[in-house]
Amino acid sequence: MTAYIPKITTIPYDVFASPAASILLPIALGTAVGYGTRPNNTAANQTKETYSAMKQPPLRPPPYVFGPAWTALYGLMGYAAHRAVMHASPSFSSSLPVSATTLQTLYSAQLGLNLTWMPLFFGLRRPALAMANIVSLVGLNGYLTYLYFGVDDVAGWCMVPYLAWLGFATYLNAGVGHLNHWDISESTLATRKALGKDQ
């Protein structure tokens, strides 16, 4: 079964071969997950309300920062993947320590982890699972960035802002989890809102 999983999860080479497709795919998927995470029967600002109802660690940005930040980061990660896969392909160089297929698979896995964080945190309201997800995501992207630098410096540097943001997001996830006793369920947040945030 494990031999079958990469065939399901690996983004096709043709996507990486096109700079536009490689950039637009994570932006489109991230946008779709963001909109899909919101419950259909609530107002459009449900995620923002959930976010503001939680006890937050210091330095948390306002909710409106996340959309533009993630759009830019998704674009950078897509461009980095395009450059790395193209530079690692046999037609470009045969002396690199990593194959294009390996980079495609690792990138696809990290994108999958990235896209599942929001449903875990805001959809299921499971900050501990989201924390496990983001720690895995940081580790995988640290390794992927290392591999990218071995293939193409521009691809590696494009991943640095993403890694920095993931580090900050890990801090926020851990802070929210700790301050809210790892419980951000709707009932808990409603009770907190009714009693006041310090309860």
Rank of each mutant, 00 (worst) to 15 (best):
Q104T: 02
D14G: 02
G139R: 13
F149W: 06
P12Y: 02
N45A: 15
R38H: 05
T191G: 09
F66Q: 08
N173D: 14
S52K: 14
H82V: 01
T116R: 08
L106V: 10
Y146Q: 11
P119L: 13
Y148V: 00
T191V: 10
L147P: 02
V15F: 08
G30V: 01
L96W: 05
R125D: 10
Y51H: 10
W165I: 08
P58V: 14
L166A: 06
N173C: 15
A53K: 13
Y64M: 11
L195K: 15
R125A: 12
L129I: 04
L25W: 01
G34K: 03
P63K: 08
G167V: 06
S52F: 15
N141V: 09
K197A: 13
R192K: 12
Q199W: 15
H178G: 06
P68W: 04
G78Q: 00
V176E: 02
S52L: 15
A53W: 03
Y107F: 14
Y64P: 08
N180L: 11
M131V: 06
S89R: 07
N41M: 05
T105P: 04
T116Y: 06
T50F: 09
V33S: 07
F121T: 11
L129D: 08
T50V: 13
W70L: 06
T105C: 10
R125I: 11
P39Y: 03
T188E: 14
L137P: 02
A28I: 07
Y162G: 02
Q56F: 07
A100T: 02
S89W: 02
T71N: 03
W182S: 11
V176T: 10
F168Y: 15
T47W: 09
Y4E: 12
S52D: 15
L129G: 00
Y74W: 12
D198T: 10
S136D: 08
P6S: 08
R125G: 09
P127N: 14
L59T: 14
R60K: 13
G34F: 04
F149P: 02
A53Y: 01
W182L: 12
L59C: 12
V154E: 14
A20H: 00
A53L: 11
M159K: 09
N40I: 07
M54W: 04
S95K: 09
L59D: 08
P19F: 02
G34R: 08
S18E: 04
G34S: 14
Y35H: 07
